[in-house]
Simulated scan of single mutants.
Amino acid sequence: MMFTGLLMAASVASSTPDIQTYDAKDYSSDITQCDVLISHPDDPYKIGPGVKRRDADLPAAVTACERAVKADPKNPRLNYQLARAYGYSGMGEKAYPYRELAVKAGYPQSLFVIGYITLMGINKQPQDTCKGGDLIRRSAKVGRFAGQVGFPYYWLEGKFAQCKFDVTKEELLDYVTNGHANADGDFYKETLVDLLKKDIVEHFEKP
């Protein structure tokens, strides 16, 4: 598929725990040093400026996020960011419960990120193809661009063949159509989406 060159970056039934609908109003939006030091640049619910991995002061971020989560333990944004700081610091096992809390709360950024590392079995996250695929699919449903292109791509590649996902052409096209709207005019993202849409149509039109 032409799309393959543009995308870089185990149970049969999903074992994903029940996931709530995330509403930022349910949690504190007071900015913390954790938000300043390690919020993800692409996180739609970040309240910090967003920091790329290469620019992060990881020891300071770990300390700040541990403090923030201790003060506000149920806040999924802060739990996700603590998990991010731990993961980048080589402490994937320590990140696990904080990843799970963010996912269970339905925190949109965590759905894709934790889905991806679960799918790949990286950063000391237990590998589970179907759980990872389910999380990525959920991230697409809540409007994360990475999920809107990632789930159709992996599905077309046969990554989820062992999973009992009832996927339709309309669902996949809906993801990429919305993904185009989320591309913010970026030429590379729009081109990727257009090629993926073509692959979806061709797949379902095969005899």
Rank of each mutant, 00 (worst) to 15 (best):
V193S: 10
D134N: 15
D128S: 05
D23A: 09
K141G: 00
K25T: 12
K169I: 10
D18L: 14
N178H: 13
Q81S: 14
R144M: 15
S14Y: 02
I19P: 01
V142E: 08
I122R: 15
Q20E: 15
G133K: 04
V62G: 11
A83D: 05
L6C: 05
D35E: 01
S15W: 03
E205V: 07
P41W: 02
G115K: 14
K197T: 11
S28C: 00
G143S: 03
T118A: 09
K94F: 05
E170R: 02
G147H: 00
A183P: 15
R99A: 08
G106M: 08
E100N: 07
D30G: 03
L111F: 01
G132M: 10
C65D: 01
Y96T: 00
G158A: 13
K74W: 14
L82D: 10
Y88C: 00
N123P: 00
Y175V: 06
T21S: 11
Y22I: 05
L192N: 05
M8A: 06
G48I: 07
F3Y: 07
K198N: 12
D186E: 10
D26V: 05
R137A: 10
G90H: 07
G143M: 07
E157I: 02
I31P: 03
K25H: 10
Q127W: 05
S14K: 04
D174I: 07
H203V: 00
D199H: 01
L58C: 13
A10T: 13
Y188K: 09
E157D: 13
D35F: 00
R138V: 03
G50M: 05
L82E: 02
A61Q: 03
Y107T: 00
Y96R: 04
M120R: 15
K159L: 02
A61E: 02
D166F: 02
F160P: 05
F145G: 06
G106Q: 08
A64H: 03
L82P: 03
E100L: 14
Q20T: 11
R99D: 13
V142G: 04
Y22N: 11
R67T: 15
R77I: 08
P49F: 02
D18Q: 14
E202W: 02
D35T: 01
T129V: 15
L192F: 03
S39V: 02
E202M: 12
A85K: 04
S110R: 09
M8E: 09
N182F: 08
Y175K: 07
Y86R: 02
K141N: 01
P73F: 10
Q162A: 08
F151I: 04
D199N: 06
C65Q: 06
G50A: 08
G185P: 08
A105F: 01
G158E: 13
L6N: 03
A24E: 09
L173S: 01
D55W: 06
R53M: 14
V12Q: 13
S139T: 04
D128E: 04
F187C: 05
N178D: 06
Y88F: 11
